[in-house]
Structures are given as C-alpha cells and as structure tokens.
Design a protein around this nucleic acid. Structure first.
Lengths: 344, 344
DNA sequence: CACGACTATGTAAGCGCTTACATTACGAAG
DNA sequence: CTTCGTAATGTAAGCGCTTACATAGTCGTG
C-alpha cells in the first residue's frame, strides 16, 4: 500500500536522487533534504553520513523539483536586445552581480537573435519569478498578460505604465547640459543625430537638446534620423560631406554613432572640433582612445542593472510596483571633441 | 478516494494552473497540456475553448513542473568570468543565439562577481542540463563531480581533459603568422606582453611568438608578464618609457593591452609604428578607430559561442564527448600599427 | 446493421523535491 | 519509576505538469 521509494533503483546510472542518497545513508529523504538545505538542525553524525552519501553518489539535486515544491523559481529573467557595445554588457553585469547576491539565477534572452520575441518572453516567464525588460523596444503586449498572472516586470530605460515599474538613467537634464555646453562654445548650427522615436532614452536626449536651445533663445533643428549603428553614422557623415547637411556641431544619440561619424569626417580631411564639434553618449572605451577624445555622457549602467535586479526581488517579495520611474544620475565627461582645449 | 483537483481553487488569485484552465474550459488537464504542447491532435473546437480559457485566466505554465515531468531542464548553463570588452559579450551572443534555435534557455553565471565560484557552479548544475565554462580559469574540481553525475560539460577556450570536451579558437598558428609578419618588417627586438600561464589561449599565442622566432633562427625574449587590462598596459608603457625595456615591436596578448600601451606611448611622443610596432589580438571595435589602425587577429568568437551551445545540446542528446579540442580558424587583420603602409 | 479501426479525450501515475505533522528516543523532573 | 518536554527523524501529502493507457464516440465496410 505504502509506496516505498517511488524513485528507488539505487543506481539509476544517470542520476542519483534524494531517494538514492537517503537509502545510501540509511536515513529518510526528509533528513537528506534537511542537511542539504541547512535550515533545520540535524545530528552531526547523521549529517556526515548524508554528506558522504551525496559525495559517493555524485548527487546533484534537481532544481525543478525544488522549485515546484517551494513554488518559486529563484530566478530572474532579463530581456535585452543584444550585447554589442559596452552598454548592455555592463548592464547585464550589474544585474547578474546583484541577482547573485540575492541568490537568484539569471536567465537571459536576447531579442535580436529571435524571430519571435513574444514567444521568447512567454517562454521565459515560464521559468522565472520576475522579468526585467530593456525598454527601448515597445513593450510587447504579452507582458501585460504576465502582469495579470502576477509576474513582476520592470522596464529598464523605459517609462512606467500600467503597474509596470521602470528604472532609468537620467537623460533630459544631462542632455540639456551637454547641448548647452556645445552651444556655449559658440556653435550655432548644432544637429541632433538619432531617432527620438526609437525609445524614451533618445527621446529625452533630444528633448534636452531642444531645451538647451530654448534656454538660449536659439532655434533648434529637426533631428537627423539614424539608428545607433556605425553604418548609419558613416552614411550620415557621407551625406554631410556631400553637403546635404550644414552643421558646426553634432550631438549624437550615442558614442558609436559619434565615433563613426568623427572618423569618417576626419578621413575626409575635416578637422574635429575645428570645423565641427562632435559629442556622443555612453562613454564607451573607444571614446577616450580616439583623438580628439570624445566628449560624452557617462551613465551608471552597472548600477542600473543592479537596481533592476533589486526591484525585481522586492516585487517578488510582495512589494507593490512604484508608479514613478527611478532615475539614476549621469555625468558629463568633457574631453576635446566638443571644442574644449586639451587639458595639459 | 479519487482526489479530484489537487490544485483546484479556480481562482487562486496569484496563479492559474493547468487545473483551473481545464475547469474553465470544461476539459481535462491532459487536453490542456496537449493543446499547449501542440504535439498531439486536438479537435479544433476544443483547442479554441482551451485557448480562450488560457487567455481569460492569464495562464502562464510553471516551467519547473514541466521540467520535472519531462526530466529535462531545457536550459544550458554558461559560466564566464565577466563581460567587459567585446570578447565575452560576443561569445555570449553566439551562445544565446544558438541555444535559442535549439529551444534552450540560457542561465548565465559570471564568476568575477562571486565569492564562491564552486558554489555558483554547483547551484547552476541544479537547473540546467549541461554547462559550458570559459576555461581561462582553472576548471573547478567540482565540475568533475558533475561529470560523474552525467551533466555534460564543455570548456570554451580550454583544453579537453577527463572526458570534458573543449572548443577553442586557433591561436598558435595565427600567433606564429602575426609574429612572423612583424619580424618580416625587420624588427628584431620584439617583446611579447602577456602572461602565458594565465590560460591556454595566451600560452599558445606566446608559443606562436616563439615559433616565429625559431622559424627565422632568431632568439625570442621572455614574456613581459601583464594581465589583460588597460591598467597593466599603461604600467608597462611607463616602464618602457623609463627605459626598463628595450623594444622595436610589441606583440600584446590582447587589444586592450595593445591599445593602452599604444596611446600611452603616443602621448609621450613616441611614433607608432615608426619607433615601435604594436600588434594586438581580438580585433575590438577600437582597433579600427585608433590611428594608426591596430594590426590584430580576429577570432570567430560568435561562432565559438554557438559551437559550445551546439556541442552541449548534442552531448545532452547522448553523444559522447570528443577527446580532441575543436578549433575554429582565426584571421590576421593587418592595419598599420605593425609597420605596414596605409592602403590608399 | 454489426464490427473493427480510428480519433478525440479522460484517468491516473509519476517526476524529485519540501515541509507540516506524527513518531520515537532520551533525559530531567516530580 | 512515571510523566513530559525536547530533540531528532520519519511519513506522506502535495507542488503543476506530461504521457502511457484506458475509454468513448464515429465511421466506413462487408
């Protein structure tokens, strides 16, 4: 009647289970579980027997079984578009580090490699307790469903909505400061290169660009649409050289764009910042290696990732979502591409 | 007697289960499972009822339960030291992309953020079917235990051992070619900067450096020990400027080292490659932005990651580990820091 | 019109853990 | 020598799925 060891078979070649360990050690599975979890007290002698058995059998617990029993995955999901450039990598590092401290595994999904992002997210939701999504892409409607199903979600670099919390780095004010800095060098034909509609980050940077002009009673130009890629940077630079645009300063949506533009212009004989000032955003490694050094804005990306992991954990813990975006301060990094003189 | 719905409670506020969906749709849980898995045929009408119920309840399956039932985690683990620089990020992207194609989730562990790497790996093993470890660090003994427990393991950029398979990019021959290239520019005091003992990758690059000298009947120098960081690069450059070393060429273990050295020397007025040639390894983004462009070696990092994911999947599928390291070809990228004339 | 072959669905037995509750063993206290 | 409290361990009931096997329907044939 009483089933004995549902999963006996002492030596199931492929896998020791808690049952085989218990058998081997001559104790019950409850005891094995207890020594492995370390929460309850177990007699020292018993504990040793169990540990020995674990060792001898090469026992590796099945996480799924534990998750099922404790009703928690003990894992956080992170959805990023991709990982090229230091930005996402740094974000991920911050996220992972904090998750590790919180004893949460991290399951990563990169959407650029997927054909069906919604499916990927749905699938992810299946194996984590909460999900952080990088928000430059539109938030897939599926996430709303997740919410209904009570999986906490936080958007990174996005805006809060429908109970989905957001964390972000400050963009508007720093952009205003950066643009102002350039304008105060006397530049009057400053162009913004990037697509404000590609996400809240860029939108706010452009807003800062506008604000800086407004502050000085200058009129700002329409943004020059470009994606955040070297290719688009080079293409724009070419158009600029061809005379399609007129500018004495370029405020680029990120460093990659700024750098590719700068190099292309320089190779064509233009002087940066003499003929044209160029500034970027992100402070990637290259920014300090090129000549002139690229003036840019450094974001606390690592901290942003950590914050996301933190919030996820607290939301899982039952806290309710904040309705305001949590902003982390950024910092203007002035080098010489903006027209400042080299410091010596 | 017959337990009816162990997890009934139609509206367990927090979570719809397969039972509530079945109830709601007026079918059995088996049917729900069938339409969700899509493997078996289900009458179209029934399928719609189920789908509707899923939608209405906002049902998200519990991955752990499925994993337990199918006895597979459907996830691959990846253990990397960190993510700074493009190398690991690219590797991860390759891994993730392939894993996605294979319908495997990826659980990431970064060891630099951990105090107890062994514990992290042990914990990871709990929730994945197989693990890929980046091998520049010594392979933790725990992994051997994993092997015993039949979790496939592959080492990336390491060497095969005890049934642990390895995948790597070719280093020796390309290093020999690169060093040869520099020597053939007539340089006679070429130094290798990097620590051959820090892992098989660097060891092989140094071996290539030695081989190139041997090929030409020249005598090679001892390596200048340095870690792969900007800091160590700058420090070495300083010592070089101070006259502690004498060299007309530098073969650096990676680009980061090469770039920081190059910039430091240039800032001190040295001419590269006039006074001294410098070459690196990795072909990071900065390598093509600096002037002179950095001559370096490009590794198929993305493919390496994909290969690791592939092998993991096949090992999980029952294939037995290969005993030879699988090598991916690398490619010499000649720019001008080696002394070549700019192509115009 | 009965029968066998399918089809569509339901039943129920696990998967390998955690943990509330029950049981046993042992001393201390009365 | 009982009686209890306490510490150590065992028992067994899930956790939410998948899937082999059993059970109804449905038809096409002879």
């Amino acid at each position: 009647m009483a089933k004995q060891h549902p999963a006996s078979a002492e030596a199931r070649s492929a896998g020791a289970t808690i049952y085989s360990v218990a058998d081997h050690a001559g104790v019950s599975i409850a005891t094995v579980s207890r020594v492995l979890q370390g929460a309850t007290v177990v007699a020292e002698a018993t504990r040793q027997k169990v540990l020995t058995a674990v060792e001898e059998l090469g026992y590796v617990p099945t996480g799924a079984a534990r998750s099922l029993a404790v009703r928690h995955h003990e894992a956080h999901g992170l959805v990023l578009p991709e990982l090229s450039g230091p930005y996402y990598a740094e974000l991920l590092m911050g996220f992972e580090a904090r998750a590790a401290e919180l004893a949460q595994s991290v399951v990563l999904v990169l959407t650029n490699s997927r054909t069906d992002m919604a499916a990927a997210v749905r699938q992810l939701a299946t194996r984590v307790d909460a999900i952080a999504v990088f928000g430059s892409a539109a938030i897939p409607a599926d996430l709303v469903r997740l919410l209904r199903a009570k999986k906490p979600v936080v958007v990174i670099a996005g805006e809060p909505q429908d109970g989905i919390e957001a964390v972000a780095a400050e963009n508007l004010e720093s952009a205003r400061e950066l643009a102002g800095h350039v304008l105060d060098h006397g530049r009057r034909r400053a162009l913004f290169v990037g697509d404000p509609d590609s996400g809240p980050d860029i939108r706010n940077r452009y807003a800062g660009y506008l604000a800086a002009h407004r502050d000085r009673g200058l009129k700002a130009a329409e943004p020059v649409l470009a994606r955040l890629s070297e290719a688009d940077g080079t293409a724009f630079a070419q158009r600029l050289l061809a005379g399609e645009h007129e500018a004495d300063a370029l405020m680029c949506a990120n460093d990659e764009l700024a750098l590719s533009i700068m190099t292309t212009l320089q190779d064509a004989g233009r002087d940066v910042p003499g003929d044209i000032a160029i500034v970027g955003w992100d402070d990637v490694m290259t920014a300090r290696y090129v000549r002139p050094g690229l003036t840019t804005v450094r974001q606390p990306v690592h901290e942003l990732g950590a914050l996301a992991a933190d919030r996820l954990h607290e939301l899982v813990g039952g806290e309710s979502p904040r309705t305001y975006a949590q902003m982390l301060p950024t910092r203007l990094v002035v080098r010489t591409s903006c027209g400042c003189l080299p410091v010596t």
